[in-house]
């Protein structure tokens, strides 16, 4: 029997979870389809709002409707991917307070990675598809490699931010609502042109509440490429990931488990 866990082993596990989660979603096909359609309709509503805005005002600090379309493409694709493949990110705090991390600690795998991949929000498929369609409409072929790289970095920031927000439960007990509000906050902030913000808000958006690195800076990079900001964005996403991992494992030492009767759904 093996005694170590390889990277290949983690990759195989990731693939197995994708299959298993898809099988679970298919058990509830109707709910899956309804959720997906609802998400797409929600996204379209926002685009209609922005279309009316730009028709009336022309531009916003240099931003045109096409920039908004790219922002939505990037935001939807990265948020959708984060939900599809790391769907447990928004459940970490309740898992901590209800003692549901026991299951993961008992296995010879990286705990945080295992937690994140073990659930999928398949309605993220709707977001991701919508993002891809928007990107196909607005981007030229040569913009695609950069777009995909920036999508990856935004996905990493989304997941890391959720891990940080939900790990608060290790330190403050049941923090599910706070963590959820913080996550909603970063999605909302990311869905506005970053040029709208200045001063302290801008500083926060490039540090602890990094909505600027999720959407604003990537959209600018796609139209005005700049090596400094590209490297900064990539480095920031990796550093943010490392911080979230540190914060999670530091908190894990305080984990108190629990005796709540649970089931794996």
């Amino acid at each position: 029997m093996k005694q170590t866990s390889s990277i290949k082993g983690h990759w195989e596990l990731f693939k197995e979870y994708v299959k298993l989660n898809l099988a679970t979603a298919l058990e509830y096909r109707f709910s899956f389809v309804v959720q997906t359609i609802t998400m797409v309709l929600n996204d379209i509503t926002w685009l209609i709002f922005w279309w009316i805005f730009f028709t009336k005002f022309g531009s916003l600090n240099g931003w045109q409707i096409e920039h908004i379309l790219v922002l939505y493409a990037l935001l939807n694709l990265s948020y959708g991917l984060a939900g599809m493949f790391f769907g447990n990110k928004n459940h970490i705090s309740s898992m901590i307070s209800e003692g549901r991390l026991d299951f993961y600690i008992n296995f010879p795998k990286n705990i945080l990675f295992h937690v994140l991949i073990s659930r999928s929000n398949w309605f993220g498929v709707g977001d991701a598809l919508f993002g891809l369609i928007l990107a196909a409409i607005t981007l030229s072929l040569k913009q695609w490699p950069l777009f995909l790289l920036l999508t990856l970095s935004s996905t990493i920031i989304f997941v890391s931010f959720a891990v940080l927000a939900h790990s608060l439960a290790f330190y403050f007990g049941n923090s599910s609502e706070t963590s959820r509000s913080l996550n909603m906050g970063i999605v909302t902030m990311s869905s506005y042109p970053s040029q709208m913000f200045g001063g302290v808000a801008k500083f926060l958006m490039l540090t602890v509440f990094p909505a600027g690195f999720i959407s604003g800076i990537p959209v600018q990079l796609l139209y005005q490429f700049n090596w400094f900001w590209l490297i900064s964005t990539i480095l920031f996403s990796l550093m943010f990931l490392a911080t979230s991992i540190y914060f999670f494992y530091k908190g894990l030492r305080k984990y108190e488990s629990g005796s709540m009767i649970t089931s794996r759904i």
Partner: peptide, 13 residues
Amino acid sequence: TVFGQKPQLWYHL
């Protein structure tokens, strides 16, 4: 490990 109150099996699968 088997925890009687914390099943490991997927409930719907």
